[in-house]
Design a protein around this nucleic acid. Structure first.
Lengths: 122, 122
DNA sequence: CCTGTGCATGCCGATTGACGTATATTCTCT
DNA sequence: AGAGAATATACGTCAATCGGCATGCACAGG
């Protein structure tokens, strides 16, 4: 894993929000849409960007693609994700995103609108 | 200080080497030229890029511009610089750069070729 | 087999970034 | 004032990126 690639991935606001959210657990694209309030194509492309550089993994689950951070991230990545987690604590946008996620989680637990309850189990 | 700006600054190899070197202490442009073996204009532009985003400071010293990391970096910056310092330990390019710097330092201490011995005092 | 849903990709235009060449700026020394 | 050294900037070029629109692909259910 290249340090440059990591920084390239993190230097976009949307990608940063995505990665930050994935720190809370796996998510599928429709969740990102709802939480970030961004169009599907934008999210999808950023996820693709992250995927080709190894910052996220994905797994198909029926109709849905469930994205997550790598199970065993490289040292540099793990270090930087921890750093990001720490730095983002104070950012209002990140806090709002996570708040939306928390609000979404129980709803999905009982009746998932998109079938990926497992994605939010974490 | 914006997280995005920090990551934008760090997502270029040359800038990463510059920042990494500044972790060892202030340096002037000619030192970067010698250590990085890159043309003056390239280094100067990247320094300018870093300066406008607040990642480095500079101070004129006669004919020379002495660059350094900010005296009191913002929390996010300090955190990320520490992270970088840690991640870069293993990178052969960074190690070589620092080795060149160490080799340069004593030479400058006795007879500085460009007058900025003070820059390497640290 | 057909349809709908979730997601990805191709194409376009606009912006930004990286690099090089040439030139300007700022200072020192004489 | 003039020359030279260290550094910065202007301009052009090429590549990468970002966003949107339209379309393609994969799967589920009837």
């Amino acid at each position: 894993m290249d340090l440059i690639s990591i920084y390239e991935c993190l230097c976009d606001r949307t990608r940063l929000r995505i990665v930050q959210l994935l720190g809370e657990g796996p998510l599928c694209v429709c969740h990102f849409q709802e939480i970030l309030r961004e169009p599907q194509v934008k999210i999808s492309k950023h996820l693709s960007y992250l995927r080709t550089r190894g910052l996220v993994q994905c797994e198909r689950q029926g109709n849905w693609m469930v994205y997550s951070l790598p199970a065993k991230p490289a040292r540099e990545l793990a270090r930087n994700l921890a750093c990001l987690q720490d730095c983002a604590q104070e950012d209002p946008v990140f806090r709002r995103d996570v708040a939306r996620l928390k609000k979404l989680t129980p709803k999905l637990a009982e009746s998932s609108p998109c079938g990926c309850t497992t994605a939010v189990r974490a």
